[in-house]
Each structure stands twice: as C-alpha cells, then as structure tokens.
C-alpha cells in the first residue's frame, strides 16, 4: 500500500535542516546521515550525502532522477556486486 499523499514525503527533519545549512554555506561538504529511510527531495539535488550502511558511509551525489527514492536504496547493506575488468570510473 502506497503512502497517503496528504502526509507528504517522509524526511527526518534534521536532514532538511542540515541540507539547508549546506546549501547556504555553499561548501559542498558531505552530509553524513544514518537516515536511510528519508525520501530524497528536490531541494537535495546537487548535494552529496554520506549514507550509512551499517558499516561505512556511502557517498551519494543526488541527481534529479533520484528524487522520490529513499537514501537507503543507494547504500547497499550487503557487499558482493560482481567485478568488472574494463569498467571506468568517471570523476564527476
């Protein structure tokens, strides 16, 4: 069952505050968070969050099409994801 629309998206309120501060300061520091349950809001786009996965923080650079997902989806709690030989990493 989907969440009722009238409640609005769920976000831990301290995250909102932290995001605003980061926005205002202009410094693109990583915002550490344990709140994997929070929805990614449009105002988070462009910020980097360190999302805890029970072991370490996974940096998540929020892009537009992530809006509406939860932070936890980008920070897997189990490890093996295969290996690749010629895979490239892009420094964005």
């Amino acid at each position: 069952m989907a969440r009722s629309v009238w409640k609005g998206p769920f976000v831990d309120s301290y995250l909102l505050k932290k995001a605003e501060v980061a926005r205002a300061s202009g410094r693109n520091d990583v915002i550490k968070t344990w709140s994997r349950r929070s929805t990614i809001l449009p105002q988070f786009v462009g910020l980097t969050f360190g999302v805890y996965n029970g072991h370490k923080f996974i940096p998540v650079l929020v892009t537009e099409n992530m809006v509406g997902q939860k932070f936890g989806e980008f920070s897997p709690t189990r490890s093996y994801f295969g290996h690749q030989a010629d895979r490239k990493a892009r420094r964005g």
Partner: peptide, 10 residues
Amino acid sequence: SVENFGGGDM
C-alpha cells in the same frame, strides 16, 4: 575498491 551504487562513483 571503486564502487558505484547509483549515487556516483566512490
């Protein structure tokens, strides 16, 4: 290691 879980490379 280098990983990408959808939130950019790390």
